[in-house]
Amino acid sequence: MSEFQREDRYIVIKRSDLDKMSPLDRDVALSNLEHVAALLFGWNAPERKCLVIESDWPEYEPAWQMIERRMTGQPPVTAAEELDAVLHWRGKHAQVIRERAALQSDLNERDQRVDELLEIAQTLTVQLHEALGNTEYHEDCIRDLAALNPTLKPHTCCGSCPAGCTIGAKP
Rank of each mutant, 00 (worst) to 15 (best):
S2T: 10
E3T: 11
Q5K: 01
R6G: 01
E7M: 08
D8C: 07
V12W: 07
V12D: 03
V12E: 03
D17P: 10
D17A: 10
D17F: 08
D17E: 09
D19Y: 10
D19A: 13
M21W: 11
S22H: 07
D25Y: 03
V28G: 02
A29R: 11
N32L: 05
L33Y: 11
L33P: 07
E34M: 04
E34T: 07
V36Q: 06
A37S: 14
A37I: 12
A38L: 12
A38P: 04
L39R: 15
L39M: 13
L39D: 09
L39H: 09
L40C: 15
L40M: 15
L40G: 14
F41Q: 15
G42Y: 00
A45F: 15
P46V: 14
E47S: 12
C50Y: 04
L51C: 05
L51R: 06
L51M: 07
V52L: 04
I53T: 13
S55M: 08
W57R: 15
W57E: 08
E59Q: 13
Y60M: 00
P62W: 01
P62T: 04
A63Q: 06
W64V: 11
Q65G: 06
M66T: 13
M66H: 06
M71P: 07
T72H: 01
T72E: 00
Q74N: 07
P76D: 01
V77Y: 00
V77L: 03
V77I: 08
A79P: 09
A80E: 12
A80K: 06
A80W: 04
E81A: 05
E82N: 06
L83D: 11
A85T: 05
V86T: 13
V86R: 15
L87E: 08
W89F: 11
G91Y: 09
G91L: 03
G91H: 07
H93Y: 03
H93T: 08
A94Y: 05
A94L: 06
Q95H: 13
V96Q: 14
V96I: 09
I97K: 14
I97Y: 05
R98I: 09
E99V: 07
E99Y: 03
R100E: 03
R100Y: 02
A101C: 00
L103H: 12
Q104F: 03
S105W: 01
D106H: 09
D106E: 12
D106M: 05
L107H: 14
N108A: 15
E109P: 03
Q112T: 11
V114A: 06
E116T: 07
L117V: 13
L118S: 00
E119G: 04
A121R: 11
Q122L: 13
T125W: 00
T125F: 00
V126R: 12
Q127K: 10
Q127F: 06
H129D: 13
E130I: 10
A131I: 14
N134E: 13
E136R: 10
E136K: 14
E136N: 08
Y137W: 10
H138N: 08
E139K: 08
I142A: 02
I142F: 02
I142M: 01
L145R: 05
A146S: 05
A147S: 10
L148A: 09
L148F: 08
L148H: 05
T151E: 01
C157W: 12
C157L: 04
C158Y: 02
G159K: 02
S160K: 13
C161E: 02
P162E: 00
P162M: 02
G164V: 00
C165L: 03
C165D: 04
I167G: 15
I167D: 11
G168M: 00
G168T: 05
A169I: 14
K170Y: 07
